[in-house]
């Protein structure tokens, strides 16, 4: 399954970078969202995929017996998701503000008002 996911993630990166290279700022935002999803999936897949063994210790037990999914990348991704969201919110509001000031959503034209 991890092999398949490698191709899917490669596609996600391709899509996100292509979208971010567009001149329209809305497409840039879409690209950003896909990029954060791709990055999170990347960490998740590379750390190893485990089916049906969440990193929870059973009620009453002190230790986990048997294999369990790696909790560390999960903790990393959890914070990454929330951070990515707030960065996205910031970027989106910034972009809208820029649009209102500059009056264009063409990134190539935004550079001329860089004063």
């Amino acid at each position: 399954m991890a092999t398949l996911m490698a191709y899917v993630i490669g596609l996600l990166f391709t899509a996100s970078i292509y979208m971010m290279l567009r001149r329209s700022i809305v497409k840039l935002v879409i690209g950003l969202i896909i990029l954060s999803n791709a990055a999170n999936l990347l960490i998740f897949v590379v750390a190893g995929l485990t089916r049906g063994a969440p990193p929870l210790i059973a009620e009453g037990a002190q230790q986990i017996t048997g294999t369990v999914a790696d909790p560390l990348p999960q903790a990393l991704i959890l914070t990454a998701i929330v951070i990515a969201f707030s960065v996205l919110a910031f970027a989106v509001v910034l972009i809208r503000r820029a649009y209102e000031v500059v009056g264009t959503d063409d990134l190539d034209q935004m550079k001329d008002t860089d004063t």
Partner: peptide, 12 residues
């Protein structure tokens, strides 16, 4: 602390 959940999820 013991089962899926926590501050992030609760806050969301």
């Amino acid at each position: 602390h013991d089962e899926p959940g926590g501050g992030f999820i609760g806050g969301l």
